[in-house]
Design a protein around this nucleic acid. Structure first.
Lengths: 161, 161
DNA sequence: AGTGAAAAGGCTTTAAC
DNA sequence: GTTAAAGCCTTTTCACT
């Protein structure tokens, strides 16, 4: 089934095929992409431009191995706030935004709970970060930390099966 | 504090500065990177090559807006397996690997618990995916699904503060 | 939307310092 | 670590179907 992007253009199987290749290696030459998907380089270029303009492709980046740059461990923290007013929620969001080690933060359904994934250098860094940064944020009713023993899967989209 | 990569070379502030730029836009010209970090293009090229060879940079990719390609919602599922033997754990890992919508899966400390983040098209898709795919995996003792109401933060590394 | 060819620009590599 | 220059390849544009 095809999807519609913000400009009403079809997001079809060719677009998905191109996207899969770019996700795997965004420096794949257009010539090679064209050959792989059965289109000309110009056509692929136009589709990529359309996907970029529509916001489906938000930019180009590099995949980084966290362990290689010094962040060996991951911690998942579940947090419950005790106040439900907007100012507390906003302050919490801003605080998370300012902590680089906080990679993901989700507000989930239920009693104002959050899931937060944090990258830490080691267990000492983990203890320090929670104590000095996270637990300093006002409004936290309680929290539960879970240390990640193993990452079974890591993907950015369902396209790369 | 500098880190050491797999080949014993220093991973210094210049490398981090280059990496931050590449994370932001991996197509930034070397000339521009050099100017930004205060090094020559050749030097930047050498450092990028070293980081790539050492595995710190694992590849080049695109950032994709999940909502734009049809996946509007995110669900976080906590799963507990009832069997602790290796074969059950491996089968569970393989099953998760085969489900494209499963973006992240972490084995965490505690009673053989997992955190799983899933991308779904909508609430109907979410219900279908859990029923037809996830809950079909043998060995699940119990699970708890949490619907993501809002994503407060999304980053891949602590470098992009 | 698609094609093909030409122009413009950046990457990569080498060489010398 | 630096600059400079050469060749190669890619991206991008343009005219046309």
């Amino acid at each position: 089934m095809d999807n519609i992007d913000n400009h009403g253009k079809i997001f079809d199987s060719h677009d998905r095929a191109i996207l899969r290749i770019l996700l795997e290696d965004s420096r794949t030459p257009l010539q090679e992409i064209g050959k792989a998907v059965g289109l000309s380089t110009t056509s692929c270029w136009n589709r990529i431009k359309r996907m970029t303009d529509s916001g489906a492709i938000q930019g180009y980046t590099v995949k980084v191995d966290l362990a290689q740059i010094g962040y060996q461990d991951t911690v998942i923290v579940q947090v419950t706030l005790d106040s439900h007013n907007q100012e507390t929620l906003n302050a919490f969001a801003r605080a998370l935004e300012s902590i680089p080690e906080v990679l993901e933060a989700f507000l989930i359904s239920g009693d104002y709970d959050y899931f937060i994934r944090i990258a830490v250098k080691d267990t000492r860094d983990y203890e320090r970060l929670l104590r000095e940064q996270l637990y300093q944020i006002p409004g936290i009713r309680h929290s539960k930390s879970s240390f990640v023993l193993r990452t079974l899967k890591k993907a950015d989209t369902p396209l790369t099966g």
